[in-house]
Simulated assay, not measured.
Amino acid sequence: MDSLTSASPIEVPPAIPDQRPPRVWKFWGTTLWGLFIFAAMFLGQVAVIVYFVLRQGGSFDVAEAIRVVGSGLTISLSVILGLPAVLLATWIAIRPTRISFTDYLALRWTSWRNFFIGVAALAILVGVWDLLSRALRREVTPGFMGEVLKSAQADGALWLLVIAFCVAAPMWEEIFSRGFLYRGWSESKLGVAGAIFLSSLAWTSLHLQYDWFFFGEVFSIGVLLGYLRYRMNSTWLTIVLHGINNLAATIQTFWLAGSG
């Protein structure tokens, strides 16, 4: 009995820390998680639209619902709400990789020299498309943009539209395409060139409001931003360049529409 009562307690071995190395999602992982992020963005934007439609009350009027959905205020808030939705979904997707959010997405700044190179390259590319548009006797800016600007101005939400188009949209679109999609696809069998092409195509598909001509322009800008993401290893650079491009397009549209 003495031997039983005096026995030392069983020692519990210390927990073995998780030694799994960090990993990047490859092609299918990036694709499936990309669909998850897109769905989160879509739900975030649709929530705003549903709210404004339901707020009308009374009987459901299709014409009124279309007007509300297309208003500058509704579009501005839906684009802005896409940012937290994408950030949260992307954080969920990156967490299992054991890589920090900023490192996975290359959310680091680059040199000012690289910044000015990016600005010059973007200005040249957009300038070529503007010249081609004029040569083909097409509108330089999409008619959709002009209508949204006028609607936002009428709603007293022009400042909100500028924030949506020039800050929120560039952030979540770049985090999604040049950040998450490019990172995973570039480390798969697609390689850098395939990742730039496919992520640019995915980004272009987010702009269904444009016609084939502006689709071509958006895709070419996506390829340039993808190349800069590869060469400069900075998604912050593409976010800033994207924002500058959208701001310039907004000012140009506002000026051409005679809304000043």
Rank of each mutant, 00 (worst) to 15 (best):
Q45W: 08
F254G: 04
R20S: 15
A15P: 04
W91N: 08
G194K: 01
L83A: 14
A106L: 11
P96E: 12
M171A: 15
A164Q: 12
P21D: 12
M41F: 14
P170G: 10
V24D: 13
L158T: 09
D130N: 15
T31S: 10
V79A: 15
M171D: 02
T253K: 09
A123V: 14
W185Y: 04
V12F: 00
V240D: 11
R229I: 09
G72Y: 13
V167E: 02
V86Q: 01
F36G: 02
G216Y: 00
I239S: 04
V86H: 01
R138C: 05
M41N: 05
A169T: 14
F115L: 15
G194W: 02
L228D: 09
L87N: 02
W109M: 11
V140Q: 08
Q45D: 07
Y230G: 09
R20P: 04
V86P: 01
A63Y: 00
F38H: 00
Q252M: 12
A120Q: 03
P9G: 03
Y230N: 15
F115E: 01
I10Y: 06
V192C: 03
G34R: 01
R113C: 05
R95G: 02
S186G: 08
H242G: 02
L43Y: 01
R67H: 12
V50G: 03
I163S: 07
S3A: 04
S186L: 07
K26G: 03
A135H: 11
T141G: 00
P170W: 13
R95D: 05
D18R: 09
A106F: 10
